[in-house]
Design a protein around this nucleic acid. Sequence first.
DNA 1: CTGAAAGCGCTTACAG
DNA 2: CTGAAAGCGCTTACAG
Lengths: 355, 355
Amino acid sequence: MPAAKKPRKSAIDPADFKGRAATINDIARLAGVSKKTVSRIINRSPLVREETRERVEALMREVGYTPDPLARGLAFRRSFLIGMVYDNPTAQFIVNMQYGALDALRGSGFELVVHPCDSRSPDYIDGVRRFVQQQKLHGVMLVPRVSEDQALADMLASIGCRYTRIAAVALDAHSRMVITHDRDGAAEAADYLQTLGHRDIALITGPGAYRSAIERTEGFVDALSRRGIKLPKSRVLEAGYTFESGVAAAEKLLSAKDRPTAIFCENDEMAAGVYRVALRMGISIPRQLSVIGYDDSPLASRLWPPLTSVRRDTRDTGRIAAAMLIQSEDDLRGRPVASVRPHLVARDSCQPPEA
Amino acid sequence: MPAAKKPRKSAIDPADFKGRAATINDIARLAGVSKKTVSRIINRSPLVREETRERVEALMREVGYTPDPLARGLAFRRSFLIGMVYDNPTAQFIVNMQYGALDALRGSGFELVVHPCDSRSPDYIDGVRRFVQQQKLHGVMLVPRVSEDQALADMLASIGCRYTRIAAVALDAHSRMVITHDRDGAAEAADYLQTLGHRDIALITGPGAYRSAIERTEGFVDALSRRGIKLPKSRVLEAGYTFESGVAAAEKLLSAKDRPTAIFCENDEMAAGVYRVALRMGISIPRQLSVIGYDDSPLASRLWPPLTSVRRDTRDTGRIAAAMLIQSEDDLRGRPVASVRPHLVARDSCQPPEA
DNA sequence: CTGAAAGCGCTTACAG
DNA sequence: CTGAAAGCGCTTACAG
């Protein structure tokens, strides 16, 4: 009978577990501690001796152990999933928000599960509730425009689900908000146009029911007013954040005898609509008409001339919103409110008005 | 002592469970069967008497019971999550694929978890493996271009993970493929240009390492050749599926003395680059130059003139790929291979060549 | 067709 | 600072 090999730490390898992954029991046994101690280490409890923690953590790394999120979820009564809830923003916005959220989640053991919905549907809140409760979500990110729906936030609070709301202004407790300061972005556009010498300026807004549109409108109008320019009602047209609605608004503005020398559009899609109409009518951008958009989407640099636009760091926004959901609520308290600031990206679609 | 109320079935409501959700034990107790029978019903086992099944199902509906995916996942050693793995396609493509996948998953109890990655990174396959194993994913959808990576597919097979690959041609067993027939889409573009009377045609391709680009190129070249048009090497430029690479290729093609009368671009981004160069050089589309793109992205209708493009039903593709993952493997066997056909959407960017 | 026992891999509540 | 017992809500393997 050959002498039993002396087990050396460095001899442990995943193959020891015959194809199955290591469990908390394997770690406890190999480390010579109870599974509860291992559990404490997994959950970063301070109630573990430093030497023990280091030894067990080294072992975990060696065998490539990661705790099973299903088992942890079952015991915690809460999964390691973060939900992202949104209602049809542009594709680039969704994707950037997802990339940002995943930046924050990488290496944390949390994963991102996506939930588009239709906020005009009467039972969409119920749909979100089922999504959250059935999956026992750890938390959800609410993206504009669903982030603006107080009834949705109230429902989530009532079932004890953590959430972060991404919106132009603080609609909720600071620990639940990421503020995008749309008012400031629009104000920057206004200042820029005034500085270039424009006085006869028009505004194509998003839908009045959207908080982002309200803020961009007020930010733009107020900033112009601070610089002594009054925007008459006839120069403000409400549209729908779509290309087609931008076309319709531009047709009204540009077919009038006294057309404006500059137009600020509250998103890039509508600015593309203005380009379309200007091209059709033989109005040269920027010589005869300056145009500014909002979003700085890929479209902005595909247009000719490249569109000056207010950039928002959507990826950063998503990263912050997700990071807040996986922080301890203590860490969140007492911090300044999370915010992401927009800024103007000047390209070639603006110049001083013709004499 | 008041007489105990006789429990009527219709009197059961979720509040009976004092805030906590009903469990399989509640259902079993209330229905007067064992939890194993309830489990059989959840899992659609045929080994349950019809009357029993109906009675229990009615009860489940009444109390709003849904099985806990964490508990089921722990017992099954497999979660109810479908992963979507991709490496930076366009935003619209990703989002449409996600919508499609969610169409298939809705009401199934499965959810979609997203996993973008960088296939140029040496350890990206390892990253996908950790993602799959840690979350115990039920299956993953592989989107181009990661779908074309045989090493990735092999790794998934080796760890026993179900997958579906979306690609231009069958790269794998039929039960694991959704075929997009890019060759046919490109051929349709070729036929259209030939029918319009073009003979001097150019092609701007995607990267030669992409299967989609290979197929679109061969489909286009072969279709022209069948119609008696030979595409000289000098008329075929490889680009990178990006706007900028489209600009560069267009500059070469359009600055030559004998420029082509039509250009087929293997995606819309590159077609937008051709538009940019044509505009700068004063070449009128479609009068002096016909252009066709591929994807039929939103960009196609934002351009002026609206771009003729090969549409692919990405949402449908995603729906089929996800549906295959949650079907039983028996159901999948013996079926014809899943496929989605592209088709040309004619807009205003093509006309017969000038005399 | 139905059920009692054991187990999936963790955590909580309690004890020391 | 550490541990033994019970439990999270399901399924598997076995028995009848």
